[in-house]
Simulated scan of single mutants.
Amino acid sequence: MSSAHHASGQHLLADLHGVAPSVLQDGAALEALMREAAQRAGAHILFSHLHSFGPQAGVTGVLLLAESHISIHTWPESGFAALDIFMCGAAQPGLALDFLCQALQAQQVQTRTVARGDGSAV
């Protein structure tokens, strides 16, 4: 019987439009939301790093997970955030995405889902 890890997971890409600029400029608040999203999804946080590009500018950051990652890139001047949520194992990335969309109060959300490591060609 093999004990090898089966490499598969779900990768969600989301474009959030109509988000308040003040929310998209606050790195500390975004990090707290990303951490809450990971916990709600059943993921295990290893490390996080967010970088602010200055007052009234965007933020970029990543939450490194045992199951993979959540990343965000924001453009407050456009009310836009790009989210990347990849999780494998028993974690549920959809729960993280739902929480973040709701918490950021996005007016419009476009998502793409990519199955990773399942052996199928895209």
Rank of each mutant, 00 (worst) to 15 (best):
residue 30 L to F: 13
residue 54 G to A: 08
residue 20 A to S: 05
residue 19 V to K: 10
residue 83 L to M: 09
residue 73 H to N: 14
residue 14 A to L: 04
residue 87 M to R: 03
residue 42 G to D: 04
residue 71 S to W: 00
residue 101 C to R: 15
residue 77 E to Q: 15
residue 61 G to V: 00
residue 19 V to S: 07
residue 64 L to Q: 10
residue 107 Q to Y: 08
residue 27 G to T: 03
residue 13 L to T: 09
residue 83 L to A: 09
residue 18 G to I: 14
residue 57 A to F: 10
residue 108 Q to K: 15
residue 27 G to E: 05
residue 31 E to V: 09
residue 25 Q to Y: 05
residue 46 L to P: 04
residue 43 A to Y: 10
residue 63 L to S: 03
residue 74 T to G: 09
residue 85 I to S: 11
residue 105 Q to F: 07
residue 52 S to K: 02
residue 113 T to R: 03
residue 22 S to M: 04
residue 32 A to Q: 08
residue 99 F to K: 01
residue 58 G to M: 07
residue 22 S to G: 13
residue 28 A to T: 07
residue 41 A to K: 01
residue 91 A to P: 05
residue 109 V to K: 07
residue 65 L to A: 12
residue 17 H to Q: 14
residue 104 L to N: 05
residue 75 W to V: 06
residue 97 L to H: 05
residue 90 A to H: 03
residue 62 V to N: 00
residue 118 D to M: 10
residue 46 L to A: 09
residue 116 R to Q: 01
residue 105 Q to M: 01
residue 48 S to L: 02
residue 44 H to M: 00
residue 87 M to D: 01
residue 33 L to W: 05
residue 70 I to T: 04
residue 29 A to D: 01
residue 73 H to T: 14
residue 59 V to H: 03
residue 28 A to M: 10
residue 23 V to K: 00
residue 113 T to C: 06
residue 1 M to N: 09
residue 51 H to I: 06
residue 3 S to V: 10
residue 107 Q to S: 15
residue 44 H to F: 03
residue 83 L to S: 08
residue 121 A to M: 15
residue 23 V to I: 02
residue 89 G to S: 02
residue 89 G to E: 02
residue 122 V to R: 13
residue 102 Q to Y: 14
residue 28 A to K: 12
residue 111 T to N: 12
residue 81 A to K: 13
residue 25 Q to G: 14
residue 122 V to T: 09
residue 31 E to P: 06
residue 3 S to E: 15
residue 120 S to V: 07
residue 91 A to L: 06
residue 92 Q to R: 06
residue 10 Q to H: 14
residue 119 G to A: 08
residue 95 L to S: 07
residue 87 M to L: 01
residue 2 S to P: 03
residue 19 V to D: 11
residue 9 G to W: 01
residue 37 A to H: 12
residue 67 E to Y: 04
residue 22 S to P: 11
residue 43 A to C: 12
residue 100 L to S: 05
residue 30 L to H: 09
residue 79 G to L: 12
residue 56 Q to C: 13
residue 4 A to R: 12
residue 55 P to V: 13
residue 43 A to E: 06
residue 38 A to D: 07
residue 72 I to Y: 07
residue 67 E to T: 05
residue 4 A to V: 05
residue 68 S to W: 13
residue 52 S to V: 00
residue 106 A to I: 09
residue 96 A to E: 08
residue 110 Q to D: 08
residue 38 A to M: 11
residue 9 G to Q: 08
residue 70 I to P: 01
residue 117 G to W: 09
residue 29 A to Q: 02
residue 29 A to W: 03
residue 93 P to Y: 01
residue 52 S to M: 02
residue 24 L to V: 10
residue 122 V to E: 10
residue 110 Q to K: 14
residue 81 A to S: 12
residue 105 Q to L: 06
residue 11 H to R: 09
residue 50 L to P: 04
residue 112 R to G: 10
residue 53 F to Q: 00
residue 38 A to Y: 03
residue 16 L to E: 02
residue 92 Q to G: 04
residue 36 E to S: 04
residue 100 L to M: 02
residue 2 S to C: 01
residue 119 G to H: 10
residue 21 P to E: 14
residue 53 F to L: 08
residue 58 G to P: 11
residue 50 L to N: 10
residue 26 D to C: 00
residue 8 S to F: 13
residue 76 P to N: 02
residue 116 R to V: 02
residue 103 A to N: 10
residue 39 Q to T: 06
residue 63 L to E: 02
residue 30 L to C: 13
residue 19 V to R: 11
residue 104 L to V: 14
residue 9 G to N: 00
residue 73 H to D: 14
residue 113 T to I: 15
residue 74 T to S: 08
residue 109 V to C: 07
residue 6 H to Q: 12
residue 50 L to I: 05
